[in-house]
């Protein structure tokens, strides 16, 4: 007993070590719903994160302003001509869309994206360490967000919701090591798996594997979600093929994918219900 009082710090460290080891041992990766203590502590950090993120964005916007001003004038002219072309295109597409709807209803295909409602959210924090590409968004279970919902931007696929708190949620991106998405090469309709890989994560790229040897894929082909696997609806743009790597050993080939979303610049996302 006296020993304990004389060596308080040693006793504290040993007992805390045991407690933390128990935490680690009882941890399972399936706890997608944050428990009360975890949720509470994360929520305490939240206000600071919101303030710092808005400060960062404001400063970035402020400096971006000067550089952009000159280029902006030129860009406006470019965009105006583009708008004219696009307006024309959209009229044509409207016709095609109506025709498509009519034909689809005849065959009985339901557009998987159309039936989805989405929740807009802002990225308020990134992962604490340099080892992962995970974001925290400012909407949680209170706003209707649940585990394993797909997260997109207007440009393409971001990832999925991996953990939910009351006022926050974690989004694991498709470039994070260990995530996998069912992909589809739009031009050739070949199915493959798009995987996040450790070595590519830092360069904001990911890998596509299990493409059959016969598939005629080339650099620049765009990849969409195939809808296989359950989390992601069909037809969301993932990215384009940057590089094809034929493998001699296996029956399949690999490719490096450049995601449509720039994970360094993304700040607003949509969560699909």
């Amino acid at each position: 007993m006296r020993y304990i009082f004389e060596h308080k710090i040693a006793v504290l460290i040993i007992s805390l070590t045991i407690v933390f080891l128990v935490f680690m041992a009882s941890y399972t990766s399936d706890k997608a719903r944050a428990n009360l203590g975890k949720d509470g502590l994360s929520t305490m950090v939240l206000p600071f994160q919101i303030v710092f993120t808005s400060v960062t964005h404001n400063v970035q916007d402020f400096f971006a302003h000067f550089g952009d001003l000159e280029a902006a004038g030129k860009r406006i002219e470019e965009l105006e001509t583009q708008v004219a072309v696009l307006e024309n295109n959209s009229r044509e597409l409207e016709d095609t869309k109506l025709e498509n709807e009519r034909l689809s209803s005849l065959v009985g295909i339901k557009d998987s994206l159309k039936s989805n409602d989405s929740i807009a959210a802002q990225i308020i924090a990134k992962d604490v360490s340099n080892w992962y590409t995970v974001f925290t968004i400012n909407k949680g279970s209170g706003d209707g967000i649940a585990d394993k919902q797909a997260v997109i931007t207007t440009k393409g696929l971001v990832g999925y919701v991996s953990e939910v708190g009351a006022k926050w949620a974690k989004v694991t991106t498709i470039i994070n090591d260990g995530t996998a998405v069912g992909g589809l090469v739009v031009r050739t309709q070949d199915v493959a798996i798009v995987e996040g890989e450790f070595e590519l994560q830092k360069d904001l790229l990911c890998k596509m594997t299990y493409i059959s040897k016969g598939a005629n894929i080339v650099t620049g082909d765009s990849i969409e979600t195939s809808g296989l696997g359950g989390i992601y609806p069909k037809g969301i743009l993932i990215g384009i093929i940057r590089d094809v790597k034929p493998e001699t050993q296996t029956v399949s080939q690999n490719a490096i994918i450049e995601p449509a979303v720039n994970f360094e610049k993304v700040s607003e996302v949509l969560v699909l219900k």
């Binding site: 460290i13 933390f20 128990v22 941890y27 203590g37 975890k38 994360s42 950090v45």
Partner: peptide, 19 residues
């Protein structure tokens, strides 16, 4: 511990190392 919780992965690893 806070770091572990905010990162959302195994709780305890960073706590032990940091301690």
């Amino acid at each position: 511990l806070l770091y572990d919780i905010v990162s959302g992965r195994i709780v305890g690893l960073n706590a032990i190392l940091f301690m």
